[in-house]
Each structure stands twice: as C-alpha cells, then as structure tokens.
C-alpha cells in the first residue's frame, strides 16, 4: 500500500505578547514534514502524491499567510464558526486520506491536544503521537517517537493514520515571502459552518485573561503545634539555601543530598 493522499492540518496561532495572528509552530512542523515526505515520494516514483493543507476556520485569517510562506502552495479552508467544534466537519473531509499530519498542541482555543485523538476515533484511523520523523515503508508508516530522557522509539503503523508531530521534531522552518506572495487560499465551497459540538468532553470553560501562578494542591497536615508554628514563622526562603561554610567535601555532600532528596538522580 502506498501513500496517495497526505493532509496537514493547520491551525491559527497568535503571538502570546503582541496577540498578532501567526502560524502555530507545532502545526508548521507537521506541515513541513508532510511537504518533505511528499517531495521525497514524488522524486522516488512517478505516481504523484498529493499534500493538502487544510485549515478549519476563516479564510481571511492573517495566520494562514504564514503557512504559505512556510511552504504550502495552497491552503484549503473548511469554514467553521469561531470556537465551534470542528471534529465532525474535519472528519467529513478527511475520509480517504492515508496520512493526517498535525501538531501536538494548538495555540488558539483550548490547546487541549485532543483534536487528533477525536479525529482518529471518529474516523477509526490509527494514531501515533510525539513523532519526530516519518518515512514510508512497504506496509505503512514508520515513525520515530520522542520519549523523555533521550529515549527514542521506532514504531510501524498501518494506514490510514493520524500522525501527531512532537515540538522537538528536527525540522527547520523556512519563512519565504515569495512563497507567500505566490500561494493561494481557497475555501471549500459546499461546507456550511459547523454546528455546536456534540462532544461533551469539550467542557464549558470560564477564561480569565490574567495569568497567575497556579496554587499547588497540598495535603492538609495534622501537624503538631510546634510544626505549625514553624511553618507559620519560617516563610519559604525565596532565594533558596546558601551554603557558605564547610570544606569542599561537605559542600559536595550538600549538593548530592539535595539531588537525592528531590529525586533528581536515581542512584
């Protein structure tokens, strides 16, 4: 089975400080991987592989021009209401696709990272997340997965499949104005804006525009009076402990016991 249709799903991002519309880096990585795979496959054999870049939202969104500059020659827009759930309408348009590529987390909306999972479930496609690189094999897609602490895992997955790209994918994003000027954004004509979500897992959120540090959940301690007094009078030292005295051996021991106390080393 060989790949014929690849889709890269791209979302609209925004700069966290200026609020300016921009590409979502995670999706750009996925799209760039798709572009590279497409051109590799087309160079190898004659039957042409097609990469479609699809965005669910508004065609006039300024963020989309970034994707053109980053290499998409055309972006197909599925009209969607702002904040509307796009799973159903996307799924409708992603039948008969071999590979769906997308970033791990958007930077607009809820950024839950759930969309690929909902799509895969709905379409009954396989899914591999945290992918760094992909290549085509005879039976499907071979993906290299990111695991923490320098671990990598190779897995083979059958198509059709949803591939979720990890933010550390070794991809160089290249923003070129000429591509932006030559690219096209077109709208799926037949689609009407999608209805309210049927997925209750997208719960009602109340948003606050002010960002504060989260409060850590702590077990209520039934402490002795002495301990309570201690914790009330000795405030958490902001600068951390400073060890001035002792010889080098003792100082080294201080560091070692700190590392062990906080389980930062496993010996």
């Amino acid at each position: 089975m060989s790949i014929k249709n690849i889709v890269a799903l791209v979302s609209a991002g925004r700069h966290p400080i200026s609020g300016q519309a921009r590409h979502c880096r995670n999706d750009s990585l996925a799209m760039t991987i798709g572009l590279a795979l497409t051109s590799d496959l087309n160079a190898e054999n004659a039957n042409s592989v097609n990469l479609k870049v699809i965005h669910a939202g508004h065609a006039k969104n300024a963020a989309l021009t970034d994707y053109l500059a980053l290499g998409a020659s055309q972006i197909d827009v599925i009209p969607a209401l702002e904040n509307a759930d796009i799973v159903d309408s996307l799924a409708e348009n992603l039948k008969n696709v071999d590979v769906i590529l997308m970033g791990s987390r958007a930077e607009s909306g809820q950024d839950s990272g759930l969309l690929p999972y909902l799509l895969a479930e709905k379409l009954n496609y396989s899914l591999v997340a945290n992918v760094l690189t992909i290549k085509q094999t005879t039976e499907g897609i071979e993906a290299l997965q990111f695991l923490p602490k320098g671990k990598r895992r190779s897995v083979k997955v059958t198509m059709p499949t949803v591939i979720v790209i990890h933010p550390l994918a070794p991809v160089q994003l290249r923003h070129a104005y000429a591509r932006q000027a030559n690219g096209h954004i077109s709208q799926f004509a037949t689609q009407t804006p999608t209805q309210e979500s049927k997925y209750s897992c997208t719960v009602e959120w109340q948003t606050q525009s002010t960002i504060r540090k989260p409060n850590k959940l702590k077990a209520k301690e039934n402490k002795s009076g002495h301990a309570r007094m201690l914790s009330a009078t000795v405030s958490e030292n902001k600068g951390g402990a400073v060890v001035n005295d002792g010889n080098s051996v003792e100082k080294a021991q201080v560091i070692l016991s700190y590392l062990r106390e906080h389980r930062l080393i496993n010996f």
């Binding site: 921009r22 500059a69 980053l70 994003l173 290249r174 923003h175 070129a176 104005y177 000429a178 591509r179």
Partner: peptide, 16 residues
C-alpha cells in the same frame, strides 16, 4: 531569505 527563508542561526527567529 525571500525565496527560501534560508537565513541561518538566530536570524529566522529574529525575523519572526
């Protein structure tokens, strides 16, 4: 830069 976006190092981040 304009046709390939190929500026090296920290330049692409700066332009962004």
């Amino acid at each position: 830069t304009l046709t390939q976006g190929a500026a090296p190092g920290k330049a692409p981040q700066t332009l962004e």
